[in-house]
Amino acid sequence: MDQTVSSLTPTGIVVNIQHFCTNDGPGIRTTVFLKGCGNRCKWCCNPETIHPKPELAYNRSKCIGAKACGRCLQAPAPEGAFYVIADTDDRVHVNWDLVSDAETEVASLCPSEAIHLFGEVMTVDQVLEEVEQDAAFYRESGGGITLSGGECLLQPAFSATLLMEAHRRGINTAIETAGNVPWAFMERVLPHVDTVLHDHKLTDPERHKKWIGVDNKRILANYKRAYEAYPDKQFIARTPVIPGVNDGEEHIRSVLAFIAPYKNVIDYQLLPYHRYGEAKYGFLGRVYELEDFERPTPESLARLQSIIDEAFGRTSPTGA
């Protein structure tokens, strides 16, 4: 499959490097978002990271207009891929179904970077050069680098080399994973990770398949094996809470039961669903399968949080 990067060329496809993140592991962190994912969560907030290759995106606010430019309206851009709507402003629209696979060539047509590519091939050194700009913050806050995605474990050679090199430079490492990868990929990367943030999205395998696209059997097997194989690593279980999908107590309790035997699973965190992915569906134009989810209410989050706090022997800050 093309989602892996050859071990001979430890380059990765990186969507973005985000500085000063505070929810991706201990301290202030720099998060590197890698491209490619084998799940299709219907609430995905990072749709630009799903496809394994660089892909075209369009930021209409940067278009200088068809009259002033119009380069994308002619060959070599595919016929019908870009168009103007009469009686509106002159900036072009994209017909995503007609953009075809000539994406790289099309992106280079645009002088204003309105049409651009998500995803850039980067070397380990290039990534670390940017990450190390924040070194002072890591030292003060106990932070470091976090690999996210997409699914960072789908680029195992790159991720492993990057994290190993980060360690060598004294940078703390974390990954965010949804766990749906062959065990060999995990085994390759995990030795170089200090904190493993891993998702438990749904308990029931059938419902997991409905909302995520695949069942969770391999994911749970991977987690169990990882907890047992790496007793010295810190694991933090996480659930993105989606009302009507996984905000019931049963799911939370079953995750708690799953992690209970393992002392190296030091926390279980809830991530309230947020809508920030939606603007990006606009940039990408592709309708994956975004459903209209509500945010979880503070009350339901507090209720679920209190179950977790009780299991971890903490007093809930909400008093619930």
Partner: peptide, 24 residues
């Protein structure tokens, strides 16, 4: 902060002001 952590494209260099209907 959560937005920043979870959403790589909240980065202003990708441009602000895309016209998207968030939800009905």
């Amino acid at each position: 902060a959560l937005r920043k952590s979870l959403a790589p494209l909240s980065d202003p260099r990708f441009g602000e002001g895309a016209r998207v209907i968030e939800r009905s």
